Computed example of a mutant assay.
Amino acid sequence: MTVFELDWHFFAAGIPAMVFAGISRGGFGGGVAFVGGAILALVVPPGAALGIILPLYMLVDVATMKAYWRKWDWPSAKGLIQGALPGIIFAVWVYTVVDADFVRLLIGCVCLAFVVFQFSRSLGWLKIGDAPFSQNFARGAGFVGGFTSFISHAGGPPATVYLLSQGLSKTTYQATMVVTFWAVNWMKVLPYAFLGVFTWDTLMGSLALAPFALLGGWIGVRAHDVVPERLFFGLTYVLLVLTGARLIWVALA
């Protein structure tokens, strides 16, 4: 894995990335938390970004879990978690046969596709109505979520599509996302270790950014009921478009 430096480029990208990711995971469902990894992948190799981000997301999940304890919808969380395991296994195989530029391209496409999906919903072009609980639907969303989570920490969007169909309250939705990806992230630890994603450099990067991830999580929990979602997500979508476009450009160039 390419060595990177903890220089001003790293901190200029990493600090705002982790604050935004922490806010998303702590208070807004975590569906756009993958913006943190996408931004970081602009300044470090994609594999290194994965290794840096995972411990930080796990740290935020533990720090914010208490606020949402037992407020989740367990059947939905269980289905998503069960589906995520085979998705992660498939992602391990993909990761071993593609290069860094393909991973950048994939992350960039996920960023742009998620923004298009959200705008289509807001404009009424795409409607997700309430649907009865389906274990197969949950597992299918979990499979896609497990795959994208492993490759780019972007498991939130597929899970979001499923949970939106369940008509959950804002807090139940948030709690379900927290417990689901707490479990999914633990599933990724062993494969990441075997693939060499974790290194001394990624550990140092995680330690350097940990305070900012925790700060974001703390802000997110407190902002859950007071900050308009439109404001937070609007800014995040701008970041996703800029970051996704840049990653695609770098990958193709």
Rank of each mutant, 00 (worst) to 15 (best):
L247H: 03
V241K: 10
F143H: 01
A38I: 04
V179M: 07
G234H: 11
D99V: 12
V144H: 02
I88A: 08
P16Q: 11
S134C: 10
Y192T: 00
A154Y: 00
V178G: 04
Y162Q: 09
G37T: 14
R230L: 04
G36C: 08
L54E: 07
L85T: 06
G167L: 03
L209F: 10
W125F: 15
L106R: 06
K78A: 13
K188E: 14
I23M: 02
A245L: 15
L123G: 14
L50W: 01
G79R: 03
T180L: 09
L80T: 06
L106N: 09
G79K: 05
G87K: 01
T176F: 04
D7N: 15
V189L: 11
F11L: 15
L112G: 10
S206D: 09
F198E: 00
Y173V: 02
L239K: 05
Y192C: 01
D73P: 05
V62K: 12
Y57G: 06
G31S: 11
G196W: 05
W72P: 00
A38Q: 06
L247N: 02
V3G: 04
W218E: 03
V241M: 14
F133P: 03
L163E: 11
W72G: 10
F114L: 07
F194I: 12
V110N: 08
L105C: 08
A251P: 07
T64L: 02
H9M: 14
Y68M: 05
K127H: 10
P16M: 12
A251T: 06
F28M: 14
Y192D: 00
W74G: 06
G155W: 05
W218F: 12
A91T: 06
E229C: 04
Y192E: 01
L235T: 08
